[in-house]
């Protein structure tokens, strides 16, 4: 780890200004991923701008019945928030399925969205990685990729996004508020994370010196139910092999609204638009769910050792929808 300067920002505007003034600066939230990566030499900022004490630590109702989540709200606080538990259970469950109690107490909402991949080659600076060092190559395609992407990957990168929380946010149509040198803008969570394409170095569409200030959840109509399911290598404290966040509203046996997002499959939380299209207006039932999910996963291009993820994702999604149907 190289020496770095440290600044505790007094305001969002100051944080952004200082970042713009100092190339190589990074915002520090909980630090659970950034400090980890600094120790690995993957990140080596010259300046850390500590934004963890900015007054962005509130969860408040929006006027239209949605929820506004400050970027520095800790994962455990967000998971425990009564409004999240009652109105957006998929989000609470996703948070609680991730990491450990200690990490959730420290990690922030904004930082969780900005987590970087757990690809073993990305984490090892002695090896090539197009994400870490553009143009150096991707050994994972032929190497260790059992835990990596099956859909939406490119020849340049097969990394997966590790967050559970982001998967739920994607299914819940959350919006990210960003503040940067050019002011404020909003990006849907589903558009926030990128596919690798020919430039895997950027995980997200965040611009230089922009910071996440809030995440906003839109209201869900009466009768909407949601949940999060995750499969992993041990019973707790492990990243997802695959996961699904499902949101469903059924009226008189017909699917009025369905949103599905997969974790562990792709470079970003994979919002299953094709499946949703097939589900909308269709009669609720296992056969419909299976064909809709299969339509989505037809686009999967598993690698040598991770085809099981496609099966796993299919089962998780179909079962999640079936479980929600009994509640809807």
């Amino acid at each position: 780890m190289k020496p770095f300067a440290y600044l505790r920002a007094a305001s969002v505007a100051e944080a952004v200004r200082e970042s713009a003034a100092r190339p190589g600066a990074r915002f520090l939230g909980g630090g659970t991923n950034l400090v980890d990566l600094m120790k690995l030499g993957v990140e080596s900022p010259g300046l850390l701008i500590d934004v963890s004490r900015l007054p962005l630590d509130r969860v408040t109702d929006t006027a239209d019945g949605g929820l506004r989540i400050g970027a520095t709200v800790r994962n455990s606080d967000l998971a425990a928030h009564p409004a999240v538990r009652t109105r957006y259970p998929a989000l609470s469950q996703a948070l609680l399925a991730g990491a450990s109690g200690q990490l959730r107490n420290t990690a922030t909402t904004g930082g969780n969205l900005l987590q970087r991949t757990r690809c073993p080659y990305f984490q090892d600076t002695s090896k090539p990685c197009n994400k870490r060092e553009p143009g150096s190559g991707c050994p994972a395609r032929e190497g260790a990729h059992r835990d990596l992407a099956v859909i939406g990957h490119s020849t340049e990168c097969v990394a997966t996004h590790p967050s559970d929380m982001a998967v739920a946010l994607a299914a819940l149509d959350a919006v990210v508020l960003l503040y940067g040198p050019d002011g404020e803008r909003t990006v849907a969570v589903t558009e926030f994370h990128r596919l690798p394409g020919d430039d895997p170095s950027a995980d997200t569409v965040i611009r230089p010196d922009e910071m996440i200030t809030e995440v906003v959840l839109p209201p869900l109509p009466e009768g909407t139910v949601s949940l999060y399911r995750k499969a992993r290598d041990r019973a707790s404290f492990a990243f997802a092999l695959a996961s699904v966040a499902a949101v469903l509203r059924v009226r008189e046996g017909r699917i009025e609204h369905a949103a599905l997002a997969f974790g562990g499959l792709a470079h970003r939380p994979w919002r299953a638009r094709t499946a949703e299209e097939a589900l909308r207006g269709a009669p609720a039932g296992d056969a419909v769910y299976l064909s809709a999910v299969d339509a989505e996963l037809a686009a999967a291009r598993p690698l040598r050792d991770n085809a099981f993820k496609v099966t796993l994702a299919r089962h998780l999604a179909v079962d999640a929808l079936a479980a929600l149907t009994t509640r809807a």
Binding site: Y6, T32, V35, L48, D50, S100, Q102, L103, T106
Partner: peptide, 13 residues
């Protein structure tokens, strides 16, 4: 009062 992994906390922060 809350548990945390002290290995990931920078003292300055």
């Amino acid at each position: 009062g809350r548990r945390a992994n002290s290995c990931l906390l920078l003292a300055v922060a």
